[in-house]
Design a protein around this nucleic acid. Sequence first.
DNA 1: CCCGGATCTGACGACCCGTCAGCTCGAAGC
DNA 2: GCTTCGAGCTGACGGGTCGTCAGATCCGGG
Lengths: 228, 228
Amino acid sequence: MAREPAALAATDGRVPGRRGRATRQRLLDATADLLEGTPWRSIKVIDIARRAGTSPATFYQYFENVEQAILVLAEELTEGAGELAALVEGNWSPEAAWDTAQAVVQQFMDYWEANRAVFRVVELATEEGDLRFRGLRVRALNAVTEALAEVVSGTPSARSVTSSRTRIRHESPAGTDPMAVAATLVSMLAHVAAHRYGFEFWGIRTHSLVESQARLLLWAVTGTTPPS
Amino acid sequence: MAREPAALAATDGRVPGRRGRATRQRLLDATADLLEGTPWRSIKVIDIARRAGTSPATFYQYFENVEQAILVLAEELTEGAGELAALVEGNWSPEAAWDTAQAVVQQFMDYWEANRAVFRVVELATEEGDLRFRGLRVRALNAVTEALAEVVSGTPSARSVTSSRTRIRHESPAGTDPMAVAATLVSMLAHVAAHRYGFEFWGIRTHSLVESQARLLLWAVTGTTPPS
DNA sequence: CCCGGATCTGACGACCCGTCAGCTCGAAGC
DNA sequence: GCTTCGAGCTGACGGGTCGTCAGATCCGGG
């Protein structure tokens, strides 16, 4: 599955050379810039072209439409997700669990923050029923969700020591279907991260949000409350 | 604050008569219909006008743009929220808490479901930074969030009996700032409700989602797990 | 039956879309 | 340094929506 070449191919099927790739990249950069400060549905091809110092017709040589250009930008999201999943699969032993929970929440919010503009579009497009964005969203969050499901389904103390390959269904504090629990938790993380500034404006400090999310996460995984 | 008349006023400031109001309503109905099956940003004034059997110019006599028409539709959301808040403030005594938690989650999802199309727009527009929609969203969810915050901040057993006016800060299981905890929980509810079909497609049953959310909610409020 | 205000609409300039055919550019070969 | 040729770029166009008038139409009261 050679996705990279396919993604790079111009709309007429030819593979661009050096100059073409540079132009394509300028168009992508311009798109990313505009994304920071504009509702994406009102980003016009002509705006992107102007900012990239080229013409609309050139844009159409590399992308079908604005949406597809953003999709290319969003592909990068899937990279950071793996890192996050690794963190989730970290140490949930009684001594370390609280730190792990906090770190997961913090890193999730950082991850979201670093890609805020793009994430926003992914959310919007997914909710509007766009299947390509939905697929991308699944790919980006699925790694985290599945890691979380696995952690949730294992007995906390046992999991941190033994291999989790033994898929014995333990009763987790938060429910019986680990994927449902994980999906619920990821929903919480995603939505809070997305609305973080709204909450802040509303007088709720980000620090408090991290804490309450971490507590819920900790409890869902280990059934315990933080020390002290 | 006479908001209703202001909302009804035509764009030129005059208050419409009987015929005018009927036309306005036809335009609103047409908008609601289109909303069900179309990404809202691609709903054209001309579509609404055609479906309402009138002309675009007439549309502009009653609404500034499509957005504002949808905003009027969304005003109705705030009605259902009060009901939900009342349910949240219900009985959290040890015997009833689990039932209450489940009922809250279920009703939240029903509420969302009943207004899915409109809620979707509210979410999208809010995330795009539209202040009018954000305000409306706050109004719709704030009642629930504050009710939840109050329930969370009170000692569960005491709260169900005494007045919660005594605002003593109890340590709640899920965190120290009740509003942060409530906001986190409402985020969870909203996001899961919004992505319900996505999860279902992904093999996660709605029933399981209700359960895991209810468990988290129960724990955040009472610090307990459901009976049996 | 007529009148006046409420309501509606045809028509218009402005703008963006997406697509050609044809032009420009740059580097490889001599 | 010059020519050549194909990759890459763009001007210009038909098609469509937007938002706004001025004027036509409707309707109830006199």
